[in-house]
Nucleic acid binder design. Structure first.
Lengths: 230, 230
DNA sequence: TCCACAAGAACTGTATCCAGTTTATGCCCC
DNA sequence: GGGGCATAAACTGGATACAGTTCTTGTGGA
């Protein structure tokens, strides 16, 4: 595994888990030192993270964790609705009993992970990926993944705060049931509803003052803390 | 303007215009020498182009111009339908007389550029951007732009070969007319139809043996010519 | 006390160098 | 003449060095 990949995975994990909050500056040199590599591969990792929307380069070309406004988060959820609706629409007629089995087993895994938000979210994403994989549209899956990544930090904050509240999988079981009927527009509606529900939860959470209030409310270029820079 | 940007613009232009065909290897050193810079900024430009889907790194980490299969191109057009439908749907209720004027003037510009495919395509993209800008969804516009870029080379080949055949703007005038009624679902249908028409044209062109037949039919890792490598 | 400015520190962009890997060349043997 | 292997060339990833820019800090004057 090359240094670039190491830096990429490291930073991606820190950002998506929220350990590096929005607007936190990222020093390529500090990161490199922490990982025992130079700042060059870190820089290249940062470029890739920029392409995924997780990192932004400021006016001074200095990288920091991308801060999304509420408006942008709503927008990104709407983009997800558009992309994932397409995916499930194409997947629906291609659903097989084997895939339904797989979805059932995945629901079990999600159930078992309810105590661990991070693990649950991973299982949850896998659940959706199983469905989208059936669409046989790999480029679309790429787009979906990218969009998902860019709001992951906020979703993670949300489920972390509420400890996975009313989403114990009931809604996901519904989606699996609807898919069994292989009806594209039915599946589409169910999924759109599902995503919009999640969106309202996240947005409400962010508006309720929880979450990174200053980061969301007033995305500043400069950041005070020099500690948690890594 | 820094060296990285120079390399990025240079390569992007070469790829989107088709001067660098699919599967053409790209030597960072050769490009750098041609531009009077070192290969380091070229490398970083290549990473960004990879994020936009125009460049791919092979198994040996060597970059080449991304080759899309017909299946992928169809997929990317379907993604465009999903994203741009959303955009025009949101834009429709926000259309103002000023925007309609702007669209009218843009139609004139397109008309004047019919003799120059490259120029016409640029004006065409601007026409669509005017509409999407009205949606007030900047992140969505980013996604649309990225998706558009990744099939641009094939669209360019198509309109270059047919010298802008039956798309003299009549269909675009229709879209502008529909937008005047500010009806989201009407606008959505008209645009989806428009994109799918373009898609069929491009796909038919590629299937008809014109276009980069070997690149499309059999995307090979290795390439014979060492001439047009730049 | 507060502002302005200047020196110093920190950071970015880029070139160059080195090591490790992959590809090409050419020779030898069959 | 053709295939296999060894050597050489080319290329990539990464580290380091250096120049130019931006930020920080501290001092002096109002």
């Amino acid at each position: 595994m090359n240094a670039q990949r190491v830096a990429y995975n490291h930073l991606k994990h820190l950002i998506m888990s929220g350990e590096l909050p929005a607007n936190a500056p990222i020093s390529a040199e500090v990161v490199g030192r922490a990982l025992g590599i130079s700042r060059m591969p870190v820089r290249e990792a940062l470029l890739q993270l920029q392409a995924e929307g997780l990192v932004t380069f400021g006016a001074n070309r200095r990288p920091f964790v991308t801060a999304r406004t509420q408006k942008e988060i709503v927008e990104l959820f709407e983009i997800r609705v558009a992309l994932e609706s397409l995916a499930i629409e194409r997947a629906a007629p291609r659903i097989t009993p084997a895939i339904l089995d797989q979805l059932g087993r995945q629901l079990d895994r999600m159930e078992k992970a309810t105590s661990d938000p991070k693990r649950w979210l991973a299982r949850h994403d896998e659940f959706h990926d199983i469905i989208y994989a059936a669409s046989d549209m790999p480029r679309l899956m790429d787009e979906i993944r990218r969009t998902r990544y860019s709001i992951q930090p906020y979703i993670f904050m949300y489920i972390n705060a509420y400890k996975i509240p009313e989403m114990p999988g009931a809604e996901h079981a519904t989606i699996a049931d609807v898919l069994a009927r292989r009806d594209p527009s039915l599946a589409r509606s169910a999924l759109a509803q599902h995503i919009r529900d999640a969106a309202s939860g996240v947005i409400y959470f962010l508006m309720s003052g929880q979450g990174p209030a200053p980061a969301i409310a007033a995305p500043r270029q400069r950041v005070v803390s020099k500690e948690k820079v890594l």
